[in-house]
Design a protein around this nucleic acid. Structure first.
Length: 581
RNA sequence: GCGCCCGUAGCGUAGCUGGAUAACGCACAGCCCUCCGAAGGCUGGGAUCGGGGGUUCGAAUCCCUCCGGGCGCGCCA
């Protein structure tokens, strides 16, 4: 995230939370993961400079693939091998030994510091994980949250033409956008979620004519639909409401008279419906920006003037062009047509000008048909003096399936499957989860049948089930035990399944941060699966409600932590976390 | 023709700011409920990471090139 967030972290490894690591609240001598890694990094870096003064090593950590390689591994030795003229393994061996000699206390927090094949593998002592668990429980719903830091982000997504109901693509766009917005807010950003209403172009006339035709049809079924209009039947109720209000008033009227009326009425009703669907989908917008309003308020003119002053426009063939080629586009783009009317792109210049001025970062999530638009829109950002401040995500297309059947969709033919119908069929939870499951750049096949199946094939149920399972265990436990669990000793937690669950839960802050930094909401879905899976393993291998009180309390504490993190993960994704199902 | 995205096990995908024996789900073969939710867990088989070059101690990951699939290239929005 260039130029914004303040994430103090070790590259590719575990996060270091600066400034919070040594608060007095903690038990004396207690050390958390970040502290432990930092002390190792310091000791190792010191050892390296001692041994090889000419090198300036960066001690970074990564999560090894295989559990036997420990919790973390560092690859410093590889970068030093050349300078040292020794094999990475020899360097690793030396550094590990020297680090330990310099800082003998490391032996207390690391169960294992082992040079293997050039890596230095680290395994933390269980008590460090216990400390981490304690932190998760005490922070609870704020675990991983970054306090507000004043950085502002504008997120635009979902925006559809105000000419019909929302469809699948908007569903994906909204799931991605809303999840990013949630994650960003969680990371301390001030987020503005925006929807642009494309109500200034010729399509609104087409809408008006189509509504009008439906209106006329209510008197005369033979009245023809306009060419290039919107044949969908969803306009009929709108037309009927106009008829109810106004009766035959518009039947003999001239087009110049009825067109604005029918266009506006259609737009207003459709936008209201779109907003309703977005709400139902769990998405609230901060701002619904009418394109028409951008024109009327003079902001479009303002945008053009700004570009003109910068010398980035010129006139040709009676039209006004933006020098897009200076910013990587393959041709210059028209702002004002030869008849003086502004283009869609021109409106976007104005809109982005406003957004760029008001925010530290601007993200657009566009549909797959906007590929060719990216350069142009990024060109605006650079032209207006905010290079690198704009990110464009293309939410790839969604193919709808029902089992093996392809679900037909054709806007032209008026065969549309609306987002509302999908929500009726599979519910909000499944839809939200499925839409973010894949990386945004991968095309998605959405199987409606799979989304409602209540078995192991369905990832949503897998995750929700584990949450319900935890809730069930907590219900079965004695209330007194649950209350006592939080402050119990976690010493009994030593089983690999227990430690590995804690390790997974401890990842949460980094996962959310990764979602934001990489604009990759699918990581949240994946993480939810991982936590669920890790819990199930723990559940299978470790009896929670056992006769030994110390063990029971510690395991209940782990359940509480898992439930909290799972619920938080799901809520960021806009999915509910049921206590029973 | 140009640009963008994708090509990883039978299928769907993750990993792509370079690291160890390439990961997850489904499907397939087997196993685990006198016990807290089996909507669960465990074990196993299955991959020349589209092909070829290059950079590097090290490439699925970066660069070049070719092949295959999708999308986009309006004074439409």
């Amino acid at each position: 995230m260039p130029g914004t967030g303040g994430c103090d972290r070790i590259a590719g490894g575990h996060e270091l939370r600066a400034g919070r690591s040594s608060t007095g609240r903690r038990r004396a001598g207690a050390m958390r993961v970040d502290d432990a890694l930092r002390s190792f990094a310091d000791a190792t870096a010191a050892a390296a400079t001692q041994q090889y003064p000419e090198a300036s090593p960066q001690v970074t950590f990564e999560a090894p693939r295989r559990p036997e390689f420990g919790d973390f591994a560092s690859n410093v030795a590889f970068s030093l091998a050349k300078v040292a003229r020794r094999s990475p393994q020899e360097v690793a061996k030396l550094l590990a030994a020297e680090a330990l000699r310099n800082a003998p206390e490391l032996a207390e927090v690391f169960q294992e510091i082992e040079p293997v094949a050039g890596f230095i593998n680290l395994r933390l002592a269980p008590k460090v994980w216990h400390e981490e668990l304690s932190r998760i429980l005490s922070d609870d719903e704020n675990f991983g949250r970054t306090p507000p830091h004043g950085s502002r982000v504008s997120l635009e997504f979902g925006s559809a033409n105000p000419t019909g109901p929302l469809v699948v693509v908007q569903g994906r766009s909204m799931s991605i956008g809303a999840t990013l917005a949630n994650a960003m807010r969680f990371c301390g950003y001030e987020v503005f979620v925006e929807w642009i209403i494309n109500d200034a172009g010729g399509q609104l006339d087409a809408l008006g004519r189509s509504v009008y035709a439906r209106y006329r049809q209510s008197f005369d079924p033979g009245f023809p639909l306009p060419e290039n209009g919107y044949p969908g039947e969803y306009l009929i109720p709108i037309a009927l409401r106009i008829r109810e209000r106004d009766g035959q008033r518009w039947v003999g009227a001239a087009e110049t008279e009825w067109l604005p009326y029918f266009s506006t009425a259609g737009r207003d009703e459709l936008v209201a419906e779109q907003r309703q669907t977005a709400r139902r989908f769990g998405v609230e917008y901060d701002h619904w920006q009418s394109e028409r309003e951008l024109h009327e308020s003079g902001q479009v003119t303002e945008g053009i003037e700004h570009l003109r002053k910068l010398g980035l426009t010129y006139e040709a063939d009676g039209a006004l062009f933006f020098r897009a080629m200076q910013f990587g586009d393959d041709k210059d783009r028209v702002l004002l047509r030869s008849d003086g009317r502004p283009t869609y792109f021109c409106m976007d210049v104005a809109y982005h000008y406003q957004k760029l001025k008001a925010n530290d970062r601007v993200v657009d999530i566009l549909g797959p048909d906007h590929h060719g638009y990216i350069e142009r829109i990024k060109g605006i950002s650079a032209a207006l003096g905010y290079p690198g401040r704009l990110d464009v995500i293309i939410a790839q297309q969604v193919a709808l399936m029902r089992g093996n059947e392809q679900v037909a969709m054709s806007k032209r033919a008026g065969e549309i499957v609306t987002l509302d119908e999908i929500l009726d069929e599979v519910g909000v939870d499944a839809a939200r989860f499925f839409f973010i499951m894949l990386a945004v750049e991968s095309p998605l096949t959405f199987d409606l049948q799979l989304a409602v199946e209540k078995d192991s094939e369905n990832p949503v149920y897998y995750v929700q089930y584990s949450h319900a399972r935890i809730a069930s265990v907590l219900r079965n436990a004695l209330a007194g035990d649950v209350a006592a669990a939080r402050s119990a000793s976690f010493e009994p937690l030593a089983h690999p399944a227990e430690l590995s669950l804690i390790r997974r839960l401890a990842e949460f802050p980094n996962v959310v941060r990764g979602v934001v930094e990489r604009l990759a909401p699918h990581r949240l879905a994946r993480y939810a699966r991982d936590v669920a899976s890790e819990f199930h393993q723990f559940y299978t291998e470790c009896k929670i409600l056992t006769g030994e009180r110390e063990v029971r309390l510690a395991r209940l504490a782990l359940c509480l932590a898992a439930k909290s993190v799972l619920a938080r993960t799901l809520s960021l994704a806009g999915v509910s976390a049921p206590d029973s199902m």
